[in-house]
Design a protein around this nucleic acid. Structure first.
Length: 584
RNA sequence: UGCCUCGUAGCUCAGUUGGUUAGAGCACUCCGCUUUUAACGGAGGGGUCGUGAGUUCGAAUCUCACUGGGGCAACCA
């Protein structure tokens, strides 16, 4: 434990003791009654409602209603100010007051207007509100409380909380000890302050938990300007709990991420496909081309790998007789990190029997459109400078045609030497481990990918780079595969799955040859998977979607770290030191 | 892995060609105020300037190494 406490941390520890001295447990165990969440009801809404209420009066038009509303809010709902203003409206108000609001005095009527302007948040509707959250600052008798939904104002009037004088003094003393970030629970009733903010008039106050470290203070004004924003990425990612507490927009992203996954699951479940779980610790890291994390099982004394993909296991389940299986889960790849790669990431893979990749394209665009609609309420997404339209159908373009379209070169009939020459001409670096498929992919990656902004299927890949896909039904040297590109990034990958075990064995053997050439990401041969195929697998189409990247598109984020709660980071320095000390 | 760039108070940031005791706003403490709206008034406390070495009479500032972050590239379905 650190013994270099800052001044403010010491103050809070002293405050903790003072709370104990009051006979209050600063970390009480009992369940907290909560029957209400904060509302973002603003004074802007209040004003709009107030105008509407006033417009109901006879002889008051929209313009005058606005004038009266402004007058009332500016003068704290003082009737005298209204009368002095000489707008010639007092008769109309008095008249209507008698009819519609059963008010006997102008004061009562004006008070009624204020209550009416609270819209759905009327005191009579919420006479006993229990609300809990973090205390986020106080100004005069008004405090801010923040819960999972947002912030709301509390009215804490001195000497009104507690039945006896002794209790009241105790609460006063407690309120003095509140620091930003402390958890409290209150009971009270809703009312509107004189400026029209819906607030809780506190009648009971309970201390629920002390915050010993000061939170960063971020302030926002009504124009949406942010002051003292907590924005250092290092601090935000390392202390995501702080980020989430003080930056509501961050929470929004993760709520959307959850909706992405939930709506995708709903879409598949409604089609009757089965959600499954397959091993994360695998003896053979199959199903993709990537370096794995390796580990070791002590009891079995065997190496194990964190999965780089789950494809081969899901296909085994299709062999076993399921019509459709899908899995949403983490994959692990021991490779570089940047704004679109994290060592662990979330993928969804789905396999559906008796379908092909043509069918899959239609399924994917419907699925993504459904998700976009559920998450954002629209099929249009703004991603950086680009406006993406997820409305199906999406453009379909073969890989060779796409290269022809963006470079003017037809590479479809070229051999490895020819491709190498083209790469040189286009200033694309190559090396000897690259086969024909890889070379085509390099050209595509360098000259086409970035320009695929609107959702586009790139179809029919060279066979060399796709050992698990079925050979194309008509085109020699190609496989039935597509990738979906959006905003220049790949977000989905699908095949007509290879179900011929003899062909599959040959493809694995080709991969072994690539590995021998030095390609350390070539696939490994999985004998048990081949055995499964030998028992027979129906024609099947499979699909993988990168959940993180899809979420990035739907939340307009350019970094994967912004859509992961806890992106991978190097250890903090002091933590490293402590570990070294422990080791010594 | 290469190049560029940043690291100053709890947070966000100033800090001049190297020159007294390193500043501001918020936050914090005390006093006043108690229907306020990012920021009420007054007073006050708080910093091994990322770490270590070097140059210098003198380093937050210049040099080197290390460390962590970010960007670009490379790598990566």
């Amino acid at each position: 434990m650190s013994n270099n406490l800052s001044e403010q941390e010491l103050v809070r520890r002293e405050s903790l003791q003072k709370i104990k001295d009051l006979g209050i447990n600063p970390f009480p165990a009992a369940e907290v009654k909560v029957n209400f969440k904060t509302t973002e009801f603003t004074s802007v809404e209040f004003l709009a409602n107030l105008v509407k209420e006033i417009e109901k009066l006879k002889g008051v038009g929209a313009v005058k209603a606005k004038q009266i509303a402004a007058l009332l809010t500016k003068n704290k709902f003082r009737v005298s100010a209204l009368l002095e203003a000489d707008l010639g409206l007092t008769e109309a108000i008095e008249f209507d007051a008698g009819v519609t609001h059963t008010a006997t005095t102008l004061e009562e009527f004006v008070g009624g207007l204020r209550v009416a302007a609270m819209g759905d948040y009327k005191p009579e509707k919420f006479p006993e509100v229990h609300i809990a959250g973090r205390f986020m600052g106080q100004r005069g008798p008004f405090a801010k409380l923040q819960d999972s939904e947002g912030r709301m104002q509390l009215y804490i009037k001195k000497g009104t909380i507690g039945e006896t004088e002794e209790e009241q003094l105790k609460i006063n003393a407690l309120v003095k000890q509140l620091h930003i970030g402390d958890f409290i629970g209150v009971k009270g009733y809703l009312f509107s302050s004189q400026t029209g903010e819906v607030s809780v008039h506190v009648q009971e106050l309970n201390f629920l938990g002390k915050s010993l470290k000061p939170l960063p203070i971020v302030k926002r004004d009504k124009q949406g300007n942010i002051y003292d924003e907590f924005k250092d990425p290092e601090l935000r990612y390392r202390q995501r709990y702080v980020d989430l507490t003080v930056n509501p927009s961050v929470k929004e992203i993760f709520l959307k991420r959850s909706k992405v996954i939930k709506s995708m699951r709903t879409f598949f479940d409604e089609k009757g496909w089965l959600e499954v779980e397959t091993p994360i610790l695998q003896p053979i890291h199959g199903g993709a081309a990537a370096r794995p994390f390796d580990t070791h099982h002590n009891t079995l004394d065997m190496p194990l790998y964190m999965r780089i993909a789950n494809e081969l296991y899901l296909k085994r389940l299709i062999v076993g007789g399921f019509d459709g299986v899908y899995e949403i889960g983490k994959m692990f790849r021991n490779e570089g990190m940047d704004r679109t790669h994290n060592p662990e990431f979330t993928s969804m893979e789905i396999y559906v029997a008796y379908k092909d990749y043509i069918w899959m394209m239609e399924m994917v665009e419907n699925c993504i459109a459904y998700i976009a609609q559920e998450v954002n309420g629209t099929l249009i997404a703004q991603v950086g400078e680009n406006t993406i339209d997820f409305t199906p159908p999406y453009r379909r373009l073969s890989m060779y045609d796409s290269i022809k379209e963006y470079t003017g070169i037809d590479v479809s009939k070229m051999d490895e030497a020819g491709l190498r020459a083209i790469c040189k001409q286009l200033h694309i670096e190559t090396d000897n481990t690259m086969g024909k498929g890889k070379l085509v992919d390099e050209i595509f990656g360098a000259k086409v990918e970035d320009y695929l902004i609107q959702p586009t299927y790139i179809t029919d890949y060279p066979i060399e780079m796709t050992p698990l896909a079925k050979k194309h039904r008509t085109e020699e040297g190609l496989v039935e595969r597509f990738e979906l590109f959006v905003n220049g990034k790949e977000i989905a990958n699908a095949y007509s799955e290879l179900n011929d075990p003899i062909d599959q064995r040959e493809r694995f053997e080709d991969q072994l040859k690539l590995a021998a050439r030095g390609d350390d990401e070539a696939m490994v041969l999985d004998e048990d998977f081949l055995r499964a195929l030998e028992y027979g697998m129906p024609p099947t189409s499979g699909l993988g979607i990168g959940i993180d990247r899809l979420t990035m598109m739907l939340t307009n984020q350019s970094s994967i770290q912004e859509v992961l709660f806890f992106p991978q980071m190097k250890p903090e320095v002091n933590q490293q030191k402590e570990e070294e000390e422990v080791a010594e």
